[in-house]
Amino acid sequence: MTSSKEICIIDYQGGGNLFSLENSFQYLGAKTFRSSHAEEIEKADKIIFPGVGSFANAMRQIHKLGLADVITQKSQSGIPFLGICVGMQVLFASSSESSKEDNLDIVDGLNVFEMPIRKFDFLKIKQAEISEKVKIPHMGWNQVTLNENSVNPLFKDIPNGSDFYFVHSYRAHGKDADISESMRKRFPKLEVAQTNYIEDFVSHIWNGENLFACQFHPEKSSETGLQLLKNFVAL
């Protein structure tokens, strides 16, 4: 490995399985440590931010542990930062995924990316246009397509359109053209990658520098996913 920096895995104590990620990095020969403490995360120089379960639960835990500020700040500090699944989603503006405890219509996120997360909604699509019943969650392997000529370092040596493993019911809807003016202003080099599940949604977002987030699970995406994590280690 070209980098010896220890990777901090943010653990917001949401009951998620962090072993898969730790196993992947161990396999790649990279050192990781878990942290739920703002002071430790503050000092980290490489961060993985995984998440599973509901958006509302993740946000509640993040606030309870006092991690909202440090995550918002570190994600834009210039150090390599990778959000995964719900760890990607909470970097967005809001989500319609509440929980029993919260019982809200819309839950606020960290708003690093000013786009909403909403549930897949196929009701508006005519059945005739779909050859087969669409399942929710979107679970399984699907293709991730980057902009042509993208130089996203996380996808180095990964053919464009490769399959990654997904499991989620909520997503950031849209494509590159849907990025707002204010988001462009904040991240002039912002790029999104798309996946098609009846509609195009944002399966990966890159601020053009060192902030990355994936809706899919690289740690469960076989050799392709390992290559992506290897690229992260090398940043």
Partner: peptide, 8 residues
């Protein structure tokens, strides 16, 4: 298995 097999 989880240490060497990176699929669900």
């Amino acid at each position: 298995t989880a240490k060497e097999v990176f699929i669900p």
